[in-house]
Amino acid sequence: MEPILEIIDLRKQFDGTPVLKGVSFSVKPGEIVGYIGPNGAGKSTTVKIILGMLSKDAGEVRLFGQPLDQSDVAYKARIGYVPENAELYDTLTAKEYLLFIGELYGLEETVIMSKTEKMMEALGIREAMNRRLASFSKGMRQKVLIISSLLHDPDILFWDEPLSGLDANSVQIIKELLWKLKQDGKTIFYSSHVMDTVEKLSDRILILNDGAVAADGTFEELKQEADGTLEQLFNTLTGFDQHAALAEDFLLAMKGEAPHDA
């Protein structure tokens, strides 16, 4: 099957510091791909380039079988995006915000309103519909973002940390939702720091480290390279094995004592 998203040797630097050092991977339609990596590995930068928020320095990005063309933004109507740092227009109410986003996608007001009401109902925030977003908790904001990314029934989802701030029950709903979306034929590309979830939920896992893909495959395949859980694999691939020592150093620093020699 032809890939829905293909990235070849993508490079990007900020002020001379390379962030992406030749990232290549492809995603097939209907896959759930977990995109993981330490903070600053370049996960969000990759997604921002795909969405046209950043320009690439070199490499190729093909989406829906077409090279990315910034002069025609129609492709964005097929994307659902949840940004990492739950930014919203705080002075609007949830209803107004979702209506606004829906209309940007060219949807009819009646359609948006009936979808919004039902989606908010399902996620348990319907009664907050007419409240300003400024008063929303982090989890509620996340739910609004998730709804806004699905209003237009997109083909591929880019979700940056979709579970952050959600309570346990909501996490379960969203996980279940992800499965159902996959069955519906959607492609899902998401990033998370919760290894447990990534391990269970993803068809494929991409580990990004220091601006390059460190591992790419199903969890079963990745297990060949290192034993144990995804978390252990992650640590091995990102060369991190000192959590105990670092925690110790941290505690000593809090007490105002000198750390052990490293």
Binding site: D90, T91, T93, A134
Partner: peptide, 24 residues
């Protein structure tokens, strides 16, 4: 649409710290 929403937002005061006031 963008313009309309932006002007609407300009007309509203930003809620204060932890402002839990409901509705517009």
């Amino acid at each position: 649409l963008i313009l309309d929403v932006k002007m609407k937002m300009d007309g509203r005061k930003e809620a204060g710290l932890g402002g839990m006031e409901t509705g517009s």
